[in-house]
Design a binder for these strands. Structure first.
Length: 465
RNA sequence: UCCGGAGUGGCGCAAUGGUAGCGCAAUCGGCUGUUAACCGAUGGGUUACAGGUUCAAGUCCUGUCUCCGGAGCCA
């Protein structure tokens, strides 16, 4: 006899009454009626909603499930999908048999049917996916991930798997996590220094802080590529927007200047928001109700308005002549503070802003120098409240200029042999950007802390689970 | 890392230096086609950790750890 196919709650709730269905999931709540039956709400993760099971106490299996069927227990229910006699749901399941797989002792199971703070849930990361909030976040996260691949695939980009372990300890970005198999208690030494010749790779290696440089290599052959993978920063950052391990999307495009780059970034964000609004409506309504009352409105606004394109110099002008009092004063050449960015995005333009053409002094060596010799073709996409979600640039494609820029920044061109080779042989104008995936999930769910939009957050002093 | 706040039953919070309480959850009972169910009763706490001041410390002081908010770094 063939094994019965499992019905997902999401499908059943949209289905017509029919016989012979099988529901499998976790009990969210149970209410007993003196009418001799129980209301059992089961969730299987397919959607936010639970399905209501009516389980009669005259069932043969009653004596087996009555005691162990509590909040958190796991069940299989065979029965019929019927029109609901009560209010609040159109259909429900009338159980023919109920089986409890795993119990959840109510005296100890931490997830009882009550409100729990996200801070508390973070301490039980192995159980928190069973909550409405985290379940909804993960469905949205999944949709965004799928949608990112679709966006690039539809536009002829190749998904490129760049390495997690890299030898370039000079990428300019933040602190890196070292990768080693050396005995840390007694590492081999040469002239008092650690001898990396004896390490696994024969040199010092770290976890990647960006796949950009490797993506450039492939863009210089395949034209359009993107990476989407884990990224690591060993910065001691303790904020609601930073993780030590996060996922980053990095497209890299040949024959693409800064304008094209900004255009793609804007199109990309709008595509993703639109897609989530369309395909995660139920979950977004939940966030809109419980997390952020303006979430859906905000997402719709982003989708329906052009992003403001603002050169850095004009941003400085706006800030200088502003009547707003800032903690940090501004002048041309300084890094904009969070308060400045928020002022521009939330007060002046009230929509996403793309800042571009930054002073070369505050940006890395690989960004293309403008004709003025003072600014580089860099751009940051800023969203209300969240701040920077995308950072990118047109890359310097001129061999001599790049060599000079490397020296200017106090780096050694010798270390960048293969990177310079890309400019020596068949160089092309090219651009790219990096999008923080968790920040995207934050914005689309309204969740304030980045630790609640990734299954297992890694932050300073936290790598549990 | 810097600035500020916090750590008290399973969870969310109270408690002028003087008997540690409340709500939710849990347990038991009542009621009910219920649905954040409702009503009644019961159990549950070395107040983060280590020192110190005091007749007396959840409360004051010192140190440590962790968490939260903001800043920096950035995505």
């Amino acid at each position: 006899m063939a094994k019965q196919k499992r019905d997902r709650v999401k499908d059943l709730l949209a289905d017509q009454p029919r016989e012979g269905i099988l529901v499998q999931g976790w009990v969210r709540t149970r209410r007993d009626s003196k009418g001799g039956f129980s209301f059992i709400e089961v969730n299987d993760g397919s959607c936010l909603k639970n399905i209501q099971i009516i389980a009669d106490h005259s069932l043969d299996s009653f004596k087996d499930w009555n005691k162990p069927l509590t909040t958190g227990s796991c069940v299989s229910v065979h029965g019929n999908l019927v029109v609901s006699e009560g209010k609040g749901q159109s259909v429900e399941v009338r159980a023919a048999s109920v089986k409890v797989h795993g119990t959840a002792d109510p005296e100890h199971y931490p997830l009882q049917k009550k409100f729990h703070s996200l801070e508390f849930l973070r301490e039980i990361s192995h159980l928190r996916p069973r909550t409405n909030t985290i379940g909804a976040v993960m469905r949205v996260r999944n949709r965004l991930s799928y949608s990112i691949h679709r966006f690039f695939n539809d536009r002829g980009f190749l998904h490129l798997h760049t390495p997690i372990i890299t030898t370039s300890d000079c990428e300019g970005a933040g602190e890196m996590f070292q990768v080693t198999t050396l005995n840390l208690a007694d590492p081999p030494k040469n002239d008092g220094k650690i001898d990396y010749n004896q390490d696994f790779f024969g040199k010092k290696t770290s976890l990647t802080v960006s796949g950009q440089l490797e993506a450039e290599i492939y863009a210089m052959a395949l034209s359009l590529v993107y990476t989407f993978g884990p990224t690591f920063r060993a910065e001691n950052s303790n904020t609601s927007r930073h993780l030590a391990e996060f996922w980053m999307v990095e497209p890299e495009m040949a024959f693409c200047d800064l304008d094209d780059n900004m255009e793609l970034a804007e199109e990309f964000i709008k595509f993703l928001f639109k897609d989530v609004l369309e395909h995660c409506a139920g979950d977004l309504e939940f966030f809109n109700q419980r997390i952020d009352k303006h979430l859906i409105e905000t997402l719709n606004q982003v989708v329906s308005h052009d992003f403001e394109r603002l050169p850095y110099s004009e941003a400085i002008h706006l800030l200088e002549k502003s009547s707003e009092t800032f903690e940090y004063s501004v002048e041309w050449g300084c890094n904009l503070q969070a308060e400045h960015e928020r002022y521009l995005v939330e007060k002046v333009f009230k929509k996403p802003v793309i800042l571009f053409n930054y002073p070369e002094t505050i940006k890395p060596f690989y960004m293309k120098l403008n004709e003025d010799g003072e600014t580089v073709r860099a751009m940051d996409v800023l969203l209300p409240r969240l701040g920077e979600i995308i950072g990118g640039s047109q890359r310097e494609d001129d061999y001599d200029t790049l060599t000079q820029r490397i020296r200017q920044k106090g780096l050694d061109p010798e270390e960048y042999g293969w990177y310079l080779d890309l400019r020596r042989y068949g160089s092309a104008p090219h651009s790219g950007f990096g999008l923080g995936f968790e920040r995207l999930v934050q914005f689309t769910t309204g969740i304030e802390n980045i630790r609640d939009v990734i299954p297992f957050p890694r932050t300073p002093k936290q790598a549990g689970f």
